[in-house]
Structure formats: C-alpha cells, structure tokens
Simulated scan of single mutants.
Amino acid sequence: MQQKSPITTLFLDIGGVLLSNGWDRAARKLAASEFSLDPLEFEERHHLTFDTYEEGKLTLDEYLDRIVFYEHRSFSRQQFKDFMYSRTEAYPEMIEMICQIKEKYKLKLAIVNNEGRELNEYRIRTFGLNKFIDFFISSCFVHFRKPDADIFRIALDIALVKPDEVIYIEDRAMFVSVAENLGINGLLHESYAATREMLAKWGFPL
C-alpha cells in the first residue's frame, strides 16, 4: 500500500460503473419486444449507425430515423424515447463511494465514456453526476470514442494531468488496456467491494 499516492485524478466510465448501461443489448431486445420490431433487423440497423451517434455526428432523432422510424409505426417517437430513457438505474453505493473519496482526498473526477448526446445528458442530469464530476469527456462532445486512444489523450489534456497521476475505473477490459498503454493506471471494475478494496490499496481507504 502506498504511503503517499501520486494519484490526483480519477477517470470514470458511466455505464456499468456509476449507472447501468442503459441503452444496451438487453434494453434493445426488450424494446424490440415491447414495440413489435423485427429484432434482427433492429439490431443490425443499430450496429450500422450507433457509433456515428455516439461520436456526436447524429442527433437522437436522426439515429431513430435510421433504426426505427424509417417506416410508419403505431407508436410515437416520444414513446420510444421515453422507453430508452427509462432503462437507466443508478448504482448508489458506487456514487457514494466516489463522492466520499473525492471529498476526503480532494481528487479531480472526470468522466470518459461513449454515449450519444441526448442519452448522455439525460443520464448525467437525472442522476446528478454533474453535481460532483469535474469534467465530462464524452464521445458525443469530443467526437472520439473508446477504444480510440485519442479520447484518453483529450481527457489528460482537459484535466491537465500526467497519465501516471490517473486511475481509470472501467468495466470493460479492452478499454482498461487501451488506457494502460498510455501510462494510465487501470482499474477493471467488477464489483463495488472489489473496486473499494483496490482504491484502498492505491492509498484511498474509506
């Protein structure tokens, strides 16, 4: 255990760490069932265009035009959006822990995540992430998405930190690996208890 940690900043993913994944495969499968969509065609259309939406190059309406409303539907656009928004839930233990660590150790907090603008802003504001996060380096804002290493380079520049001053908390091993290749300290999030224990080993016990 380090006596004096050089860490000044935490980079955090949102989906799978602070909140549920939201508009993930399970949510889309449920949407296909709820709205009587062809599940194979729906998923194919999603995969063909979602990266572009997450990079901030499409609005949510344009994304939905391509995957759902390319033909007449018996439900409204707003009904479908409301369903998408409803798929998010918070992980209160994780949020509380990160807030406590920030307060106790005076760390900077930055979000580094992939998400389309409307979903991203809804999740940030609805669950109050903007009340304790200092920087949002979201794919829809910076037009790079993980696993592109440039999103991490931008995050380092915005936070004005060196890679070895950062711990990146993420639930996807590939993205942790990309960050580590830049010299960022990676922490693969698997559970609240495991992440709390790892942070304590880095010098941030609660």
Score class of each variant (00 low, 15 high):
120 N>G: 10
119 L>E: 12
107 L>Y: 04
124 I>C: 01
114 N>R: 08
143 H>G: 00
140 C>P: 14
128 G>H: 07
127 F>R: 07
152 F>I: 03
102 K>F: 07
126 T>G: 02
115 E>Q: 00
116 G>C: 06
111 I>H: 09
126 T>N: 09
106 K>D: 10
141 F>P: 11
168 Y>P: 12
138 S>D: 11
112 V>W: 11
149 A>R: 14
164 D>F: 01
118 E>I: 03
122 Y>E: 03
96 E>H: 08
174 M>E: 15
123 R>K: 10
106 K>C: 04
104 K>N: 00
174 M>F: 15
133 I>H: 10
143 H>Q: 05
123 R>N: 14
105 Y>M: 12
116 G>V: 05
157 D>I: 07
123 R>Y: 04
146 K>H: 12
161 V>L: 02
142 V>I: 03
117 R>I: 03
154 I>T: 14
161 V>R: 10
166 V>T: 03
157 D>Q: 14
126 T>L: 03
100 Q>I: 04
143 H>Y: 03
139 S>P: 11
151 I>Y: 10
133 I>C: 08
147 P>S: 06
133 I>T: 12
125 R>D: 07
148 D>M: 13
155 A>V: 04
100 Q>N: 02
168 Y>L: 09
140 C>V: 01
124 I>H: 03
112 V>D: 13
148 D>V: 10
127 F>K: 04
152 F>N: 02
117 R>W: 05
143 H>S: 02
111 I>L: 09
163 P>I: 08
162 K>Q: 12
138 S>V: 04
112 V>F: 14
119 L>D: 12
140 C>I: 00
129 L>R: 03
164 D>T: 01
163 P>V: 07
148 D>P: 05
120 N>T: 11
139 S>L: 04
